[in-house]
Amino acid sequence: MDTTITVILVEDHTIFRTGLKVILADEPAISIVAETGRGGESLELARRHRPDVVIMDISLPDLDGIEAVRRILAELPETRVLMLSMHNEPEIVCAALSAGALGYLLKDCASDELLEGIRTVMRDELFISRHIAGAVVRNLMGLTVDPADQTALPTLSPRETQVLKMLAQGSNNKEIAWHLGISVKTVETHRAQVTRKLNLHSIADLTRYAIRSGLISPE
Rank of each mutant, 00 (worst) to 15 (best):
M1G: 15
D2F: 13
V7L: 15
E11F: 07
D12P: 00
I15N: 02
F16K: 02
R17K: 11
T18C: 02
T18S: 09
K21P: 04
V22E: 05
E27V: 05
I30T: 12
S31M: 06
I32P: 13
A34C: 07
R38A: 08
G40P: 00
L45V: 03
A46Y: 00
H49A: 01
I55D: 03
D57T: 04
D62E: 02
D62Y: 00
D64N: 08
I66R: 04
R71H: 03
I72Q: 04
L76H: 13
P77I: 01
E78N: 11
R80Y: 08
V81G: 14
M83N: 10
L84N: 04
N88P: 02
N88A: 14
V93H: 02
C94K: 02
A96Y: 07
A99N: 06
A101I: 04
G103K: 10
G103P: 10
Y104G: 12
A110V: 03
A110W: 03
E113N: 05
L114T: 06
L114G: 05
L114S: 09
I118V: 09
R119L: 05
V121R: 11
E125N: 03
I128K: 03
H131D: 15
H131L: 13
I132L: 09
A133T: 12
V136C: 07
V137I: 15
V137P: 05
M141W: 13
L143D: 10
A148S: 09
T151W: 01
P154Q: 09
P158V: 05
P158W: 11
A168C: 12
G170I: 12
A177N: 04
H179F: 04
H179A: 15
L180M: 13
G181P: 10
I182T: 13
K185Y: 08
K185M: 15
K185G: 14
V187W: 00
V187P: 08
V187E: 08
E188Y: 01
T189W: 00
Q193S: 09
T195H: 02
A204D: 03
L206D: 03
L206V: 05
T207P: 05
Y209W: 14
I211K: 13
I211P: 01
R212Q: 15
G214A: 11
